[in-house]
Design a protein around this nucleic acid. Structure first.
Length: 462
DNA sequence: TCTGGGGTCCTAGGACCC
DNA sequence: TCTGGGGTCCTAGGACCC
């Protein structure tokens, strides 16, 4: 079993495509006041910046880092290339995310020894580097668990092969937190019982663990600690739910405003249901209050739907049941209980008259909100009507909200100067650096943010 | 350090059915 | 009618992952 893990993936793609950022701290994630870090380059990690850290804290730790919003279509493209290379090893490839996958070599390479696995994996790593310009760490072992732990052991740009007879010695001294499924809460609870290492966990009383963590988690944990992991590689799982959510720049208290936001989220969900050819029976809304307490409310319909009107109706009805007066920081809408679209659903939906206040024919496909890639280009979202403090009141404040829609890191072209990327924007201006993956470090130029010669562009070809 | 967005899986209680 | 046992569906919440 192999586990593949692209190193500092989002940040590495940015450094690849932006010569001026190579060797520099780069942080990809939400760039607004409430953003968090998705990926930090290794140079940024040296400042103590890591995933899930609030971006404001990252700015405090390294004000000179490049803070980028992320270009998901570029990441997706690279991911597809890597997954295609993985498929050359075996048809049993299970993508975990854009930057991770498991590969089961069992059927295609029976009876491979450690040296054989090494040769195979090194060949793969070389091909990834040649076709994408990125480094990938690979772990190999008798199970998903061991492969995953191995890939993490000597990151970045490393291969670690763990033969079956060595897994015990590898696992025993590791902290329990390294076992997938042991997060902050479980780790704390185990520590209170004096269980700190994997060896401690392996020796723990099973009945005790089940009492503490429930049937599935309790016994599963101890099995993992003993190196028992029967999980197979599952190549293509069907999605079980589709959802969209948004954290607002400022807490919302106005119910009408929330209903409006809910509608936009519904449209995003509906588009994705349609492109996936699925409909669902259960509509869920998620609401996070000012104090971070989170509520979910769901309603199961008699028939599956993919219709934005029906989903919106259910979502707003659910919203009605909740008190929003104290302030809502996040709203989400989801659909679960998915089934394949039937011909009947399709016909019913085509017949459906547009609801009042909805653009006619704005069924799936009619994505609003402008962006070429929905939700991708600007996580943390530009708040069009935001009441953000403009400019430089805070010491480490993010750039003023990009009313123009330019997001840091975004690919652009200028009629005169050619391809480049947005380095920053605010107060009616955009600064662009004109460089690409194969050019030397480029020069900066500043434009009015409504300059007609400046256009959004697709990701550059590496 | 005031905490994203997209998911998965598990648990527990109550309704309902036979 | 003073009360079984099993199964399924639904809802809500929470831990966890990348």
């Amino acid at each position: 079993m192999l586990h593949l893990d692209l190193d500092a993936f989002f940040a590495a793609v940015e450094q690849r495509d932006k010569p001026s950022l190579r060797g520099k701290p780069v942080v990809v994630g939400g760039t607004g006041w409430r953003g968090v870090v998705a990926t930090a380059s290794y140079e940024a990690r040296a400042f103590g910046i890591g995933s899930a850290m609030p971006t404001m804290e990252a700015r405090r730790r390294c004000p000179n880092a490049a803070f980028l919003a992320g270009r998901f279509s570029a990441y997706r493209r690279v991911s597809e290339q890597v997954m295609a290379l993985a498929h050359e090893l075996s048809p049993l490839v299970e993508p975990v995310s854009l930057d991770e996958a498991y590969v089961d070599l069992g059927p295609t390479h029976p009876g491979l020894d450690a040296a054989g696995v090494s040769a195979l994996a090194e060949g793969f790593r070389a091909r990834v580097r040649a076709t994408t310009g990125l480094t990938v760490s690979v772990g190999a072992g008798p199970s998903k668990l061991v492969a995953k732990i191995a890939s993490d052991l000597r990151k970045p740009d490393a291969l670690v092969v763990v033969p079956a007879d060595e897994q015990r010695d590898l696992l025993a001294p590791l902290p329990v937190r390294r076992i997938p499924g042991v997060g902050a809460v479980t780790g704390e609870r185990l520590a209170r019982f004096g269980i700190r290492t994997v060896a401690d966990l392996a020796a723990a009383d099973e009945a005790e663990l089940v009492r503490m963590f429930g049937k599935a988690h309790g016994s599963g944990l101890r099995a993992y600690a003993r190196g028992i992991d029967p999980r197979p590689v599952v190549p293509e799982r069907d999605a079980k739910s589709v959802s969209a959510e948004e954290t607002f720049a400022v807490d919302l208290t106005d119910r009408r405003e929330l209903v409006e936001r809910a509608r936009r989220l519904v449209d995003r969900v509906a588009v994705r249901l349609a492109t996936g050819g699925v409909s669902g029976r259960t509509v869920t809304i998620k609401l996070r209050r000012y104090d971070f307490t989170t509520l979910n409310r769901s309603r199961t319909l008699p028939q599956p739907t993919a219709s934005p009107r029906e989903i919106a109706q259910a979502a707003t009805a659910l919203l009605e049941t909740l008190d929003v007066a104290d302030g809502v920081r996040l709203l989400g809408v989801g659909v679960s209980g998915l089934t394949e679209y039937t011909q009947q659903d399709l016909l019913a939906e085509l017949d459906e008259p547009a609801a009042p206040g909805e653009e006619p024919g704005a069924e799936p496909g009619g994505a609003e909100s402008g962006g070429a890639e929905p939700g991708g280009a600007e996580p943390g979202g530009a708040e069009p009507g935001g009441i953000l403090p403009q400019g430089s009141t805070a010491p480490y404040g993010p750039p003023a909200p990009a009313r123009s829609g330019w997001s840091p890191g975004q690919d652009v072209t200028h009629d005169e100067h050619g391809p480049g990327w947005v380095q920053g924007s605010g107060v009616g201006r955009v600064t662009v650096r004109f460089e690409g993956p194969r050019t030397p470090v480029g020069r900066i130029r500043t434009f009015r943010d409504d300059d007609p010669a400046l256009h959004p562009a697709g990701p550059p070809v590496w």
